[in-house]
Amino acid sequence: MAGAFWCVVEDDRRGRPKRVTAELIGEARRRAGELGAGVEALWLTDRAEEEGLGQLAGWGADRIWLVEGPALAPYRGEVWVPVLAELAQKEAPRAIWGAVTSRHRELMARLAARLGVGLAADCVGFALEDGQLVAARPVYAGKLLSRVRWRGQPWLATLRPNVFKPADEGPAREPRVERPAVSVPPGAATLVERREETQTGLPELTEADIVVSGGRGLKGPENFVILEELAKVIGAAVGASRAAVDAGWRPHRFQIGQTGRTISPKLYIGCGISGAIQHLAGMRTSKVIVAVNKDPEAPIFKVADYGIVGDLFEVVPLMTEEFKRVLHGE
């Protein structure tokens, strides 16, 4: 279908699409519906499982463009971009959307340069204005919202995870898979080593539904265990403020904020975090914000939906106990 919305599949590197892909397809279906366009998935991978293809169809991908090949993993821009560009030039999609993930972020930027079109990065909303799609994206560390539109097509965008309502799992349907004949160029970069981060047993920060986060109020690295215990009970990821990271209490990859990760979980629980502007930038789009701080004047209470003024060393363990009781009947 010409003029379709293409969603680039973000997968788990084991042949299945990640949930953020359902969010992409869900939003694309809503916008494409308004314009009478179709939604198609575009999957570049070294390995696609049948089940994964079925999932994409179930979410509502009318067609799946699948390019499989060993050179496609791990992601390298100089390999992926020519493949995508060739397909896009041939099929003329109306939009190409990716997720705000490490590889899509770079991929979409390079693709935009290759195609000579605009890229709206890190979008949190779309609306039709005068028949044109307008994207909303936070700028200045989330202090302002910028509304942008494209001069030409395709409309390239990356969508922030956890913001858009994912497509519902539709009735199972046979995926319509296209395996286009495109040449996959050899890459210039070669992977030497992949160092897995130490497994915390907790979800990834940017993908988690719930995030528990700690700041200077934790007083030392050893006390993060209090947050980890709560996180285990409620299935949360553990993050940290810049103060905690700069103090060397947590590695940088756990930092939430302007110079760290941007997250929008369903529930954010900030403990001993004052709520500096630069931290708020990383979490203010969370759906529900809870703050625990002994200082009633801490700025985080201004953005919190619920707050407890108290000592986190007392409050957090009580929360862990209470959640254990109501969630697990312990």
Binding site: G118, E129, P138, V139, L144, L145, R147, V148, R149, R151
Partner: peptide, 10 residues
Amino acid sequence: QLELVRLEAL
């Protein structure tokens, strides 16, 4: 290629 329509306060 990407036009800024407007900025808004959150």
